[in-house]
Every structure is written in C-alpha cells, then in structure tokens.
Design a protein around this nucleic acid. Structure first.
Lengths: 327, 327
DNA sequence: AGTGTCGAGGACAACGTTGTCGTTCGTGGC
DNA sequence: GCCACGAACGACAACGTTGTCCTCGACACT
C-alpha cells in the first residue's frame, strides 16, 4: 500500500480510503489510485487490517472426523454455504478421531483467530477450549456433545433413530437382531447401541452378547463379527448397522456369503435405493445439521442466545426392502 | 502478551522468548511466565506474528467444485494430509462451478495471505491470479488446466480413459454407444467426449448426434436424453457416462425403465461393485491427484521446479459386469 | 580495585493497516 | 478584503508480535 501511495503520489491514508470505498477522495485521485493498484496488482493484507481493527477475522474453523466421509462432506458443504452467506471463509480439518490431532488443529485455528469453531468432537475432554470461548470465540458442537465444555450443540436423535430402526425389524417378526456399531467411546455409537438395546427390551427380546459388535469398521472385524452372529447356536435373522461405513462394510461382506439377513442401516447413503436389495435406513439430515450448527454459530457471534442451545434433529426411517425381509 | 508480561512482572520480549522457546530466559522466570500464560489462557496472535515476520502464513487454500462430491471430497482429504504433514492449515471453498464465486473465494484466500492455492478451475479466464503468483503465492491447478495462466497442473488422463472405456464396450460387440457427459465447457467433459469420439472413429462406428447428451446432470435432463438414445430409430445398446454424478443419475433412471444397456462410467464410486449389475468404471485416483497437487505446491513453495510442471495421472478400467453385457 | 565477559532481560522499531485529528485550499457570504 | 466553512488529503499512533540492540549485574581474572 505504501508502494501504491508512492507510485500514485498520494498519502497512505488516501489509498486506504480508495481501497475501502470511503468518502473524501475526489474521483480524479481515486481513479489514479485505482489504476496504480491495478497495475501493481496490489491486494490489501487482511492480516494487518484485522490486527488494526481488532475485529472479527471473517473466518470460521470446521473440525470433523473425515471430510471424505459422505456424511461429513455433506455436513461440511452445508456449513460452507452458511459461512459464505455471512461473507466468511472456512478452514477445514479432519481429526481422524484422534483427539491430539483435533486439539492441535483447533488451537491452530484459534491462533489464526477464527471467529468461531464448529467441531465434531472426539471423546476426549475439551476443557482446553475454555480460554478461547472466554476470549469470544464462538463454539458449536455438532453430531456429538462436547465433553468438558458447555456449548451450543446440534445432535441427531440417535437413540430414537436406533429404536425406530430396531423396532422396525422387530415388527417384521424378527426376534434375534444383531447390532454392529462404531467404537463405543464415540457418543453416537453408544447412543445408538442404547437405542437398539432399548427397542429389544421393549419387545422382550433378550440380547445375546455375540450379537453385538462395536469397533472401527474394518473389513476383517466385520467379517468375524458377522460370522459369529450368523452361524452361532442362536443366529440372528436381522442386523442393525450403526453408521454408513459399517453398513457398507457389512453389505460388502454379505455379498460374499450365503445368508441374507434383514438389515437396517443408520445413515442414508447414495445408491442405497439401487442395490440388489434396496437398503432400509434411518436417515439423518447432515445438511440440516450443518446448516443449523453454522447458523447457531453466527447467532452466537451476534451475541444472541444467552445460554448454550441444544438442538436435536430428528431422524427418519426410510423403508426400501432390506429392512422388510421376513425372518 | 502485554497482559502476560505485566502479570508476570517481566518485559514483553521475555514473554515472547518464552512463547517461542528462545534461549536467554532463566528457568525460574520462564516457569513463572508459563504459569501466567496458562492462567490467562493466552494464545499468540498468529496474524501479528506473520505480519511482523513477513513470512509464510502456514496456510493453503483449496478451491474445488463441490466438497460434497465424493471425487472432490477424497481429493480434498488427500490434500489435507499433505498440508498437515507440512504443518499448514487448509482453507476450503466450493466454487459450485461459478467462476465469479471462485474468483471471490480465491481473492479472499489471497487477502488472507495463503502461501499457496490449489484450484479446480472453472472454465473462465484466471489471469486475475497473475499478480498473486507474481507476489509469490504458489498455485497448482488440479483436475483441469487453468485457462489464461501457466501453472503447475495435475490432470487425469481423461481422453485415454474415455477411449479405454468406450473401446471396452466396442470390444463386447456394441456398435451403437451413447455418451452422457457434463457441460461441454468443462475441460474434463470435453476431453472425455473427445476420447469417446476417437474410440468410435477408431472402430469405424459412426456417431449419431442423438446419442450424445452433454449438460449438468439433472434427473430430468438425463431422462429425456436416455429416452432419445434408447428408443429412437437407431437405439444405442451401450452407454458411456462421463462422470460419477451422471453415472449415478443414469443408473437411477435406468432402474425405472425396461432397457438394460451395457454401461461404463468414468469415475469409480462407492458401492459400484454391489449393485444388481456391478458397474464397470474407468477409475481415476482422486487421492493420488490430490496428494500430487499438494506436493507440487510445497515443492513450488520451496522454490524447486523452475518451469510449471504438468503431471498426468493414468486411469484404470475396472470391469465389473455392466460393461461386459452383450449388445 | 579495575576491567573484561557473559547471561538475563528490557526498550524500541517495524510489519501493513486504519481511526483520529490536523492541515491546506477553494468557495461563498458579508 | 476577510472570515467561515467544507472538501480533500496527509501525519501519526496503534493493533500484537518479533528482531536488534542496549543495559544491568554477577563473576573471574589481572
């Protein structure tokens, strides 16, 4: 900017005025300055601007488990749209379910002075973010609650969804239903497992422990779990899958086996309706969740709600065939 | 930091030294300063730091069509991994194929002084980025070349892939093959269409214009296009689809129709192998493309290659069934 | 005791902006 | 001719850091 001022033969402040469209510059001068700016390819340094103004940086951080997961990538897109509508930019990071990595990214974002942070928290304590919220950084937790900090939170109705999915299978006449879910220290996984147990209990169906398999969805683990569930002395006739990754892994494994148990998946996924047996799912609305979280963040930045909000987004059972198979 | 210095009863610079782990501070003082930092929840303002140092900001911008598209979300994740390995942060934006929006985002990133920009360019001229590259911002174009600017570029071998996919159908005995692709002003769409035409010509198969449908993949457009291709006087017996979105839309539309033409899709997609008729695809490697682009960016930041690099990532035909159906 | 040396720590400027306040100059009214 | 006034513009400080250079005291050596 100094260079521009020198080249245009005007003062520093005049260039600043032109750049910011402020009044008090004659059209002749402004034109000359603009020409020099164009010629020199000058762009204002937002870092310095923000430093001076002490204002918002116009950027928001989004921290989730994995951008490549369709659930999160849809959520991410929804967040982006809201952020964009507010004229802000979005920093994204994948925690890969590693709390150290999450923390590192979150603090990195804060060092860049993001206005707010939208986080899909890992299960570790998030007290380290307290100074940031105290310093005015808005914080919204999405998909899971944030352990160790009272913040705005947007959750799916995991338990009710799992109850609905499991109950749907039971209504088809199944009594032995298996459950495959993510690692139980993940909030959603635990909630959905609880929903499954509740639905089973509500229908007086005792649950045998071999019917339950919890863990990060890897093909081998799924294979063993399915073998145990489907070929034991009391084989299950139906499966409830706790998330899209697991559902897909199960479908892939089932494709290589003889058994064709009924199946309901938590999370909708593309092409679920086009499979040989279309897959019944308990659909979440990642777009709505992302949008809600982002809007909550900007409401918070406007200083609107006094107490932390807790919003629960309902799920929806979509019968497509796999969940309507008889025992 | 001023507050920390005051509270700890030391000078500003001493706090700075502690924060940066510089020598010249006694352990006693350093401990005291660290305690105050902890207590006050102080975090260094990276904006000011970078302003002072005039150095790299440790951030990179990624601009693509749509984070929610599985192809781009995988690419995005790969970029993120490399960026993280270099200790940088990632700003992400979706252009939604809108060049004005892309430009706005790109300039926004540059105002934040990102060290580099990885872009999936729209078809508009990108000369506006010339001043940025001149100012030292690294720039890499991925998935498509960047019109109007000579930059590092990572492309898939679109034409060869489309040739391979189309030739594969022709080898099954098809002579009338239809092509459905994205809007022809998109580089990849045009390249792949050209590959299709070339393969047809190589096998002396004349192409009739109703067999070709180019445009943004919307269900209605696909429906009309398929009706035209499949029910005209010279109906096609096979389809080549130009991208994952189109392939999925076509599959969905075909599911509601009687005809079951052979089909090869450009881009692999999850569950392609689990459909009623598993889908033969020309697979790209979005992870490799993303990683390559990001590594190129950091090489450029280290000042390594003199001239802009052009890297072409090969595609791979994966026969699964749909492409092996006879006429 | 005087001098040199070294470690600890502070004062100050500068990075690129913008808010505040002042200066200059032209115009219009008396 | 004088003054008031407003428009156009510039000088300067400040934002939070860090690099440079300085001071101060302790200690060892002559």
């Amino acid at each position: 900017m100094k260079d521009v001022a020198a080249a245009a033969g005007v003062g520093l402040k005049t260039v600043s005025r032109v750049v910011n469209g402020e009044a008090g510059v004659s059209e002749a001068t402004a034109g000359r300055v603009r020409a020099v700016i164009e010629q020199l390819g000058f762009r204002r340094n937002d870092g310095a601007r923000l430093l001076r103004q002490g204002a918002r940086t116009g950027s928001v951080g989004l921290l989730l488990e994995d951008v490549a997961d369709p659930f999160y990538s849809q959520l991410s897109r929804a967040v982006e749209e809201v952020v964009r509508a507010h004229g802000s930019l979005l920093l994204t990071g994948s925690s890969a379910e590693d709390s150290a990595r999450e923390r590192e990214l979150a603090l990195g974002f804060c060092a860049r002075r993001v206005d707010g942070l939208i986080v899909v928290p890992t299960s570790a304590d998030h007290g380290y973010l307290a100074p940031e919220t105290a310093a005015g950084t808005a914080l919204v937790s999405v998909d899971r609650p944030m352990p160790g900090l009272e913040v705005d939170t947007v959750l799916a109705d995991n338990r009710a969804g799992a109850v609905a999915g499991t109950a749907h299978l039971l209504r088809q006449g199944h009594r032995r239903v298996g459950y495959l879910g993510d690692a139980p220290d993940i909030f959603t996984a635990a909630e959905r497992l609880a929903g499954y147990r509740q639905a089973m209990a509500d229908s007086d169906c005792p649950v045998e422990e071999p019917w339950i398999a919890m863990g990060r969805p890897d093909p081998l683990g799924i294979r063993f779990a399915l073998a145990r569930m489907l070929t034991g002395p009391t084989p299950v006739t139906a499966l409830m899958c706790g998330n899209n990754r697991t559902t897909v892994a199960v479908l892939r494994e089932l494709a290589g086996r003889q058994e064709h148990p009924a199946l309901v998946g938590f999370d909708d996924f593309e092409l679920a309706d086009l499979l040989a047996v279309p897959v019944t799912v308990v659909a979440q609305d990642p777009t709505l969740m992302g949008r809600t979280a982002a809007e909550l963040l900007f409401r918070r930045l406007r200083g609107e709600p006094a107490a932390p909000q807790h919003i629960v987004v309902p799920t929806r059972l979509i019968p497509r065939g796999s969940g309507e198979l008889p025992p």
